[in-house]
């Protein structure tokens, strides 16, 4: 061993490196890693802790009971409120928060916290005809032709909800048989 001093130093360096690595590792690996499989156990709780953004139609109907009841009783009960209106979490939060904002501004704020459907784009998601769609689904080939072939005249401002109530699908007609704009809003 007289002529192997340099190897001893090398081995010492290696030992220092390995021990240093193990020390750093023990400090940096989370305590709950590997408790139940090769992962950080609290990652499950982290994922579960996220706040759901879609509140569900029942939650919407708690305040908007009139629309909710009409929706539940109508033919359009399978699409959920949030399909067209977007997730309701922010809306409920704004409603629930303590606020000193005065009346018109506060309503505006609450309204801005939820998506306001255009009344035509959302309808076309389901009701424009494509070959792959089941024939049992009511669909139209083209909005302009649909309106023109009925009682109206298609303009660029024409909307489905000018005639159809999106919550119930009901079309109300006046004495002459011409559809009248349905009452939709809250």
């Amino acid at each position: 061993m007289r002529h192997a001093a340099h190897f001893l130093r090398l081995v010492a360096l290696l030992v220092v490196a390995v021990v240093g690595f193990l020390f750093v590792r023990s400090k940096l690996v989370p305590q709950d890693f590997g408790v139940k499989g090769h992962f950080r156990l609290s990652a499950i709780a982290d994922e579960a802790a996220r706040e759901p953004r879609h509140i569900g139609s029942d939650a919407c109907a708690e305040c908007h009971d009139e629309i909710g009841n009409a929706w539940k009783a109508g033919k359009h009960r399978t699409p959920q409120c949030e399909n067209c209106h977007g997730p309701g979490l922010m809306h409920t939060k704004v409603v629930a928060e303590e606020s000193t904002t005065a009346y018109p501004d506060r309503i505006l704020k609450i309204r801005l916290a939820i998506r306001r459907p255009t009344g035509i784009v959302e309808c076309k998601w389901c009701h424009l005809r494509t070959f792959e769609r089941p024939s049992t689904l009511k669909s139209i080939a083209n909005v302009a032709d649909h309106i023109n072939s009925h009682t109206g005249t298609f303009t660029k401002d024409s909307k489905c909800i000018d005639c159809h109530n999106p919550h119930t699908t009901v079309v109300t007609v006046n004495a002459k048989g011409v559809p009248v704009p349905p009452k939709i809003g809250p």
Partner: peptide
């Protein structure tokens, strides 16, 4: 770089 060991004797070189 020599890790402080300056032994380059024939024996060391053999090792």
């Amino acid at each position: 770089l020599a890790l402080g060991v300056l032994d380059i004797s024939k024996e060391a070189e053999e090792v």
